[in-house]
C-alpha cells in the first residue's frame, strides 16, 4: 500500500488489539474458511482502512491495525466463517479493488 505524499500516517502507538476477526456463526461440522486480504503496491492506506471499516464494520483502531498488518506482513485475515460467506466478502473486496482470497483454515 502507499501513502499519499502529505497523508502522513499517525505515529502514535496503537492500542493493544486481540486477533479478533468478523466471525460468522456456523455449524460445528462445517469446515471453517477465512477471508485474506493481501498487500498491493497501489491502493492507498487511507482507502484500505476505510474499506475495512465500511465493509466489515470494524472500529477505526481495528481497521487501522488490520490495514497495517496487510502493509507490514503482506496479508491479514479479515473474517472467518463458512465458505459461502467468505466468498461474498472476497467478491466485495474485489469490487473495491483489493486483493482478497478465500482460504481453508488449517486444523
Amino acid at each position: 500500500m502507499v501513502m499519499r505524499d502529505n497523508g502522513a500516517m499517525t505515529a502514535a502507538p496503537l492500542p493493544a488489539l486481540d486477533n479478533q476477526v468478523v466471525v460468522t456463526p456456523q455449524h460445528a461440522a462445517e469446515v471453517p474458511w477465512r477471508t485474506v486480504v493481501w498487500n498491493d503496491p497501489v491502493n492507498l492506506m487511507s482507502y484500505v482502512s476505510w474499506v475495512f471499516r465500511r465493509h466489515f464494520g470494524l472500529d477505526e483502531a481495528t481497521a487501522e491495525q488490520r490495514m497495517l498488518q496487510v502493509h507490514n506482513d503482506g496479508r491479514a485475515i479479515l473474517a472467518e466463517g463458512n465458505r459461502e460467506q467468505m466468498e461474498r466478502h472476497v467478491e466485495a473486496m474485489h469490487e473495491y479493488g483489493l486483493w482478497a482470497s478465500v482460504e481453508r483454515v488449517e486444523r
Binding site: N39, D40, P41, V42, N43, Y47, E95, Y96, G97
Partner: peptide, 21 residues
C-alpha cells in the same frame, strides 16, 4: 472510489509498479 481505484490498478501495471515504494 471504486472506478478510480480500478484505473489506478491498471495504470500501475502499465507504469511497472510491482512492489511498495
Amino acid at each position: 472510489m471504486r472506478a478510480i481505484g480500478d484505473l489506478r490498478l491498471i495504470l500501475a501495471d502499465r507504469l511497472g509498479i510491482l512492489v511498495d515504494g
